[in-house]
C-alpha cells in the first residue's frame, strides 16, 4: 500500500514534470479527439448505432429499447464497468437486447475505447 502511494506520488511528479515539458496539452488534445471520434462512432449506423436503442443528447431519431444515456458518471462511478457493459452487455444480463460489441467483434477495441470516452461525458 505504502509502496503504491509512493509509486503514485512518483508518477504524479513525473506527470507534473512532463507537463512542464508541454506534454500535458498534447494528451488532452488526444482525449478531446477520442471523445469526438467516439461520438461519430456511437452515432454511425454501421458502427455503434447506439441511437437505435438509446436517446443520446444531440442524436436524432433515437429508439427507446434501452435507457437514455445520461448522467453516466453517476450511474457508473467506475468507467471500466461501463466499458465492460459495452464490450459484453450479456454478462450483466444474458437476455439483454444490447449487442455484445466487443465479444462479437462488432467494434474494435480502440473504437470501444473511444465510444467509452464519449459516453462517459454524457
Amino acid at each position: 500500500m505504502r509502496k503504491t502511494a509512493k509509486l503514485i506520488s512518483t508518477a504524479t511528479s513525473a506527470v507534473i514534470l512532463l507537463g512542464c515539458l508541454t506534454l500535458a496539452p498534447a494528451t488532452s488534445v488526444v482525449a478531446a479527439s477520442a471523445v469526438e471520434d467516439g461520438k461519430k462512432l456511437a452515432f454511425n449506423r454501421k458502427k455503434g448505432n447506439c441511437l437505435a436503442c438509446h436517446a443520446i443528447k444531440g442524436g436524432k431519431l433515437a429508439g427507446n429499447i434501452g435507457p437514455p444515456l445520461i448522467s453516466m458518471k453517476a450511474r457508473f462511478p467506475d468507467k471500466a464497468k461501463m466499458r465492460a457493459q459495452i464490450w459484453d452487455s450479456t454478462r450483466s444480463n444474458p437476455n439483454t437486447m444490447m449487442p455484445p460489441f466487443g465479444r462479437h467483434k462488432i467494434l474494435s477495441e480502440s473504437d470501444i475505447n473511444k465510444i467509452t470516452e464519449y459516453i462517459y461525458t454524457l
Partner: peptide, 22 residues
C-alpha cells in the same frame, strides 16, 4: 447473428418499442 438478436427480442420483448424510428 453478430448483433445477437432473437426474433423474440424484437417482436415479443421489444414489440412496441422503437429501434431508431422503426
Amino acid at each position: 447473428g453478430q448483433l445477437n438478436f432473437s426474433c423474440a427480442d424484437c417482436h415479443v420483448f421489444g414489440a412496441g418499442s422503437s429501434a431508431r424510428a422503426n
